[in-house]
């Protein structure tokens, strides 16, 4: 038999950092979820950074940098200058550059988290930018959100329903909302969280790290 030597061996350099996206309407709790994820990822030994997207400010980045949870140099901001969905979907160049810069600044980086709101329920991430993305909605936004079948709800790799503790206070039947979400997503996963108490944050970390091959 002929000699074949082209096996897929481990490279000499560390693989590039995985990139994930966290999208969803303004106020759904994206930044709060990241604040809960940060200590979980740190405890699991993940070398990570965060890139936030805002319209014309660096508000979300400043909130994380001042949180005391993470080295401020591991947080950067992209100012979209327009609705942020434009820089995570139509032309993600600014975010790709921000991710590259984070990898340059922090050798051995394993994960870059991109956060962006914008475009209400239609916000989606380009897979040129991220390897995996999740869409966040919250019960206070209304239990009819899943039935509206927005692209973010339908196409994301994971749908997170946040602020589940508010359901009884805003007249939402949480079980029905989750059932509707699972129904429209054709088997793709749905996770109910509460960023205020930390409910299901460990499970969220499990799902993310499994998806991008960073399980410890």
């Amino acid at each position: 038999m002929q000699s074949i030597e082209l096996s897929n061996e481990a490279p000499t350099a560390a693989p590039a950092a995985a990139r994930i996206g966290i999208g969803g309407p303004v106020g759904c709790g994206k930044t709060a979820l990241i604040e809960r994820l940060i200590p979980v990822l740190q405890r699991r030994g993940i070398n990570f950074a965060v890139v936030t997207n805002d319209l014309v400010t660096k508000e979300d980045a400043l909130r994380l940098q001042r949180s005391g949870l993470i080295d401020p140099t591991r947080v950067s901001a992209v100012e979209a200058g327009a609705c942020p969905h434009t820089v995570i979907r139509e032309d993600p160049t600014l975010n790709i550059a921000a991710g590259d810069e984070m990898e340059r600044l922090h050798p051995g980086l394993e994960l870059v988290i991109f956060e962006s709101g914008g475009d209400n329920l239609a916000s989606t991430y380009s897979l040129d930018l991220v390897d995996w993305w999740m869409f966040v909605i919250d019960v206070a936004g209304g239990d009819d959100i899943p039935r509206k079948r927005g692209p973010g709800v339908l196409r994301s790799d994971l749908l997170v329903v946040n602020k589940v503790d508010l359901a009884p206070h805003v007249g939402v039947d949480l079980d029905q909302m989750l059932a509707d979400a699972r129904s429209v997503r054709n088997g793709r996963p749905v996770l109910a969280t509460n960023a205020r108490t930390g409910q299901a944050i460990e499970e969220l970390a499990d799902i993310i790290l499994h998806a991008v091959l960073l399980e410890r």
């Binding site: 590039a16 995985a18 990139r19 897979l127 390897d131 995996w132 998806a211 091959l213």
Partner: peptide, 17 residues
């Protein structure tokens, strides 16, 4: 995607990075 998990028809799990 640059990171992806997938499975072949005969059950081989593939992790792509």
């Amino acid at each position: 995607r640059r990171r992806l998990r997938a499975t072949t028809a005969d059950g081989l799990d593939v992790g792509i990075m």
